[in-house]
């Protein structure tokens, strides 16, 4: 139930809504909780609301950390 799916904002609309593309499906969601989100941003969508802007840079940092893990474990 706490499922949330990344989507990209296609167009901001009036009334705090935005059209997003979720894996190719377009629908309107509310930006009430992420008013800073702009067109082109990835947001995490839960039950019709964006709950956070997904940070692609942090995603990369996490992947880098995952790649380093075997070496880190080696050093322990």
């Amino acid at each position: 139930m706490c499922l949330a799916i990344p989507a990209v904002i296609v167009e901001k609309k009036e009334n705090g809504l935005a059209e997003v593309d979720i894996l190719g499906v377009h629908r309107d969601i509310a930006l009430d909780l992420t008013p800073q989100a702009e067109t082109g941003d990835y947001v995490l969508v839960h039950a019709g609301f964006a709950i956070e802007v997904v940070d692609q840079q942090y995603a990369q940092e996490t992947l880098d950390l995952i790649k380093q893990f075997p070496e880190l474990a080696e050093q322990e």
Binding site: M1, C2, A4, A30, L33, H46, A47, G48, F49, I51
Partner: peptide
């Protein structure tokens, strides 16, 4: 119904 993820919505 739902936890902190859903309550603000």
């Amino acid at each position: 119904v739902g936890f902190e993820t859903t309550t603000p919505l």
